[in-house]
């Protein structure tokens, strides 16, 4: 059997891929500015000067130089070769990286911004949440605490072991992804995962995918009926050197993310040494005894910033209903 990882060289074809596909999800994409403007600051002068009115993603009328716009129609669909090449890269992962997440339970107050950002960022339908917030209580004598749960991206992932068709896979950088064009929907991975991290598309998700968008296992957009979905650690963002959506969205800085090989994690504002955080705050992994070796670490809810009840204060009834059956277990 040929290892798919062998076929992958570097990130260069990803860039081609992005160029051909158009950048991601936004309704309009502006070229020539992202990243390259640092060296070509004067570029703006060379523009056509014709301003075009456009509706921004926030629904506001904005004016944009004509040259900056690649209209949705203008996006060239990526050719098959590029898509296939990218699929191989999405299977191999980023070279010499090993990602980890640290979740500080002391700061979480069920603000649910991580959930919202995740749902929006991955165009997920309602009732199909990748990020979940649990209100845990280990025993009636111990205290309740909020417990955000992404996919743990285990190093010995049971879900990957049991997949009969190799639709879900473990990458060298530690990320576990699903190719939902391969998934047959047997749901074995869902029973295999001890952390309920996987969700199934029980019906057609009815996602409005931007025109010209090409399926990419790193975002798993669009969700497909009859297949399994789960948190992807925002592998697409990592490829661009950006933090996962839930990390940037959290107003409390609950979620740290980083490359464990660099011994560094950040929540966007604070950057800490991973090992120091583990030592100082007695970091742990959820249900270590199951031996799946998660890539997500937790800092115990000591000296909390918010009382646990505050997590249900400003929430809708529909959210409160989700925490009716809470008790020690």
């Amino acid at each position: 059997m040929k290892d798919e990882a062998e076929n992958v060289s570097d990130g260069s074809s990803r860039r081609n891929f992005l160029k051909k596909v158009g950048v991601g999800v936004g309704a309009i994409s502006v070229t020539g500015i992202v990243g390259s403007s640092l060296l070509k600051g004067n570029e703006a002068k060379a523009k056509s000067g014709k301003l075009v009115k456009l509706l921004s993603p926030e629904g506001k009328l904005v004016e944009v130089d004509q040259d900056d716009i690649k209209s949705a129609k203008g996006i060239q669909p990526a050719d098959n070769e590029t898509v296939e090449q990218h699929k191989l890269e999405a299977r191999a992962g980023l070279p010499n990286r090993k990602f980890a997440m640290v979740i500080d339970l002391a700061r979480c107050k069920n603000a649910r911004k991580c959930v919202e950002a995740c749902q929006e960022g991955h165009l997920l339908p309602k009732d199909h949440e990748w990020m979940r917030l649990y209100l845990l209580q280990d025993d009636s004598t111990t205290s309740k605490y909020w417990f955000p749960r992404p996919c743990f991206h285990c190093d010995k992932p049971m879900c990957v072991s049991v997949c009969p068709v190799g639709a879900t896979y473990k990458r060298a950088d530690g990320i576990v992804l699903i190719d939902n064009q391969r998934c047959i929907g047997c749901k074995f991975c869902m029973t295999g995962c001890p952390f309920s991290a996987r969700v199934f598309n029980w019906k057609d998700p009815e996602v409005k995918v931007p025109e010209g968008h090409v399926y990419d296992p790193e975002t798993n957009i669009p969700a497909t009926e009859g297949t399994v979905g789960k948190c992807v650690f925002c592998a697409d963002k990592l490829r661009l050197g950006e933090l996962p959506r839930c990390v940037s969205a959290c107003p409390m800085g609950v979620i740290y993310f980083g490359d464990i090989l660099e011994d560094t994690v950040t929540n966007g504002n604070e950057t800490e040494r991973f090992s120091k955080l583990m030592t100082d705050r007695a970091g742990y992994r959820y249900r270590e005894e199951l031996g799946t070796l998660p890539s997500v670490y937790y800092l115990p809810p000591t000296q909390r910033m918010f009382p646990v009840e505050s997590g249900l204060e400003d929430t809708d009834k529909s959210i409160k209903d989700r925490y009716k059956k809470v008790g020690p277990r």
Binding site: I28, S29, V30, I33, V34, S37, G41, K47, V64
Partner: peptide, 26 residues
């Protein structure tokens, strides 16, 4: 963020001189 907006950069206090016009990214 506001994307695709033209911003003018100036130098000087009383007598301003234009350095460049730049456009914001996404």
């Amino acid at each position: 963020p506001l994307q695709g907006m033209e911003i003018s950069l100036f130098t000087g206090t009383e007598k301003k001189e234009t350095i460049a016009h730049v456009v914001t990214d996404n």
